[in-house]
Simulated assay, not measured.
Amino acid sequence: MKNIILLLGLAFMQPNVGDHRVDVWKTMTIAPNESITINKVKAPVTLEIKNLSEENIALVSELKIPSEISGKSEFKYRLPKKSTLKLENRKAFPVSIYLHYYSSQPIIVNNKELR
Rank of each mutant, 00 (worst) to 15 (best):
S73F: 03
E88P: 01
R115P: 00
N111G: 07
S67G: 12
V45E: 06
D23G: 10
S35W: 04
A58Y: 05
L85N: 02
E54W: 02
K42V: 05
V45L: 04
L47Y: 08
L10F: 12
V24R: 15
I65Q: 01
L8Q: 08
A58V: 12
P44M: 09
Y98T: 05
I69E: 07
F93G: 05
K86C: 01
I57K: 08
I107F: 03
S67R: 13
S104K: 15
G18P: 14
T46K: 13
Y101G: 02
K40A: 12
Y102H: 13
S70Q: 13
K40E: 12
W25G: 10
I5G: 06
V22E: 07
A43M: 04
F75D: 09
N89P: 08
Y77N: 06
L99T: 09
V22F: 02
F75C: 03
H20K: 14
L47S: 02
N39A: 11
N39H: 12
L87Y: 06
V60P: 00
I5K: 13
S53I: 07
L59Y: 05
I49V: 15
S53N: 13
E88W: 11
N51R: 13
E113G: 07
N56Q: 13
E54R: 13
I36L: 15
E48F: 04
R115N: 14
K42I: 01
K91Q: 13
E68N: 09
V109Y: 04
I4P: 03
P15K: 03
Y98K: 14
L79K: 02
Y77W: 15
R21Y: 01
S61W: 08
V22L: 03
I5V: 14
A11W: 01
R115T: 04
R90D: 10
N33T: 12
H100K: 08
E113R: 15
A31V: 03
I30S: 09
S73G: 01
I108Q: 12
K76P: 03
P15E: 08
R90P: 00
K76H: 08
F93K: 14
L52Y: 02
I36D: 00
D19N: 14
N51H: 10
S104G: 15
N16T: 11
K50F: 04
E34K: 13
I65N: 00
A43T: 11
N110L: 08
F75E: 09
I97M: 08
T29R: 05
E34S: 12
E113K: 15
D19H: 10
W25S: 15
Y101V: 08
I97Y: 06
E54L: 11
L63C: 01
T84V: 14
E88T: 15
H20P: 00
A11R: 01
L114H: 03
I69Q: 09
T27F: 06
F75A: 05
I4W: 11
S96T: 11
N110F: 03
N56M: 10
L63A: 00
